[in-house]
Write a protein that binds this DNA or RNA. Structure first.
Lengths: 201, 201
DNA sequence: CCAATAGTATACCGATCGTTATACTGGAGC
DNA sequence: GCTCCAGTATAACGATCGGTATACTATTGG
């Protein structure tokens, strides 16, 4: 990569960064192009040189952030030998990703729980399915190995994902101190998932 | 209530209904006043006779829907004697409320997980806190009675709420058949919550 | 019967929206 | 040195936005 390409890539990243900040805070529809331009410090022709339209910005962000978090997840799951270890790894890697920059997860929650943006509907379904699939595979593995009781792996995967998403949402929305998403909390979630809340006595 | 008041209330409800449909589908920011007018079949002076501005429509909807669902919840919890029964009642009443009309829950997810709408920030925090409080009280009761293991009741409440929200979100977003939110699923959620997914063997 | 009120029909305002267009510049690459 | 390209500065387009205003009508209630 030569100097020009590098400078161009940096400009593109500034645009994406500005859009991420604003979309995650305000939502896609309530964020105007001119605001993105101001935050990014570039002009309109530059934006339209890099992206076809506003929706392309959103799509690029969605693909980047869902992609990153899911690649990270796939990597940490691959190195854990036990199911319990994989579950902990799932939760802690989700926490770490969110602590590093809450804007990405915040945008992902919006797109998952919020109103549809027609232009990205197709691509979004594919992206959200991947995380789920990774977790389903862990559950399936746990059921086969006997670590988990016989149950619907898809139901288990959805449930653990929802248990993890709640603290992530709280953190990304309320600007809690980083100590909110602790290793202790991650362990508590997995323990609750595995052992339940009922009193065994 | 006389005939005039009744007709006026009906017009107001038509406006709220139209706004609910559009806000829940498209989001608040992406829904225009003129679209609401068209769906409601009323004119602009009528809308502004009933509501000060666009945000007042949203606030009225939020207060109505959070209020209804939480009153319903408080009522069903009050008549259940056991904690397990209360947990089942919590899940099933949430399911029933969502099946009756998924637009309300969908709007609630948007406001909870989505971008802030500054005008309703203050009122929203109060409303979301109430559901949580009701569930925390059930957990506290369960811990005191020995039905639940000693644990943080707030953590337990948040977790169960997230476990319930996931199928609600899926249902309200994907227009699944009503048989998705079954009594069996409600029982499975509570069982997973109480007993966990780990194999006791 | 008459006044009040809720609603209709319509126009308008200033502002903002996403996008397109044009002329120009500076710096990198050849 | 020259060309190309990424980016700047600026203007403009048609459309839409939330809200305000005005004249009018029909119906209800006193």
């Amino acid at each position: 990569m030569n100097a020009r390409s590098e400078a161009t890539a940096k400009t593109r990243q500034r645009l994406l960064d500005a859009a991420l900040t604003l979309f995650s805070q305000r939502g896609y529809a309530a964020t105007g192009i001119r605001e993105i331009l101001e935050v990014a410090g570039v002009t309109q022709p530059t934006l339209y040189h890099h992206f076809a339209d506003k929706a392309s910005l959103l799509q690029a962000l969605i693909e980047q952030h869902y992609g990153e978090s899911q690649n990270l997840l796939a990597n940490v799951l691959a190195v854990e030998p036990t199911v319990a270890g994989k579950l902990i790894a799932f939760v802690t890697s989700s926490f770490e990703y969110c602590c590093a920059d809450p804007r990405g997860p915040r945008l992902m929650f919006q797109t998952y729980y919020g109103p549809t943006v027609p232009e990205i509907d197709g691509v979004l379904d594919k992206l959200t399915d991947r995380r789920y699939r990774l977790v389903v595979d862990v559950m399936q593995l746990g059921i086969c190995s006997g670590e988990l009781s016989k149950s619907n792996p898809e139901f288990l995967a959805l449930t653990l994902c929802s248990m993890v998403d709640q603290p992530l949402n709280i953190f990304s929305r309320k600007s809690r101190p980083k100590r909110y998403l602790t290793s202790e909390l991650a362990h508590a979630i997995v323990e609750l998932f595995l052992k339940g809340a009922g009193n065994p006595a």
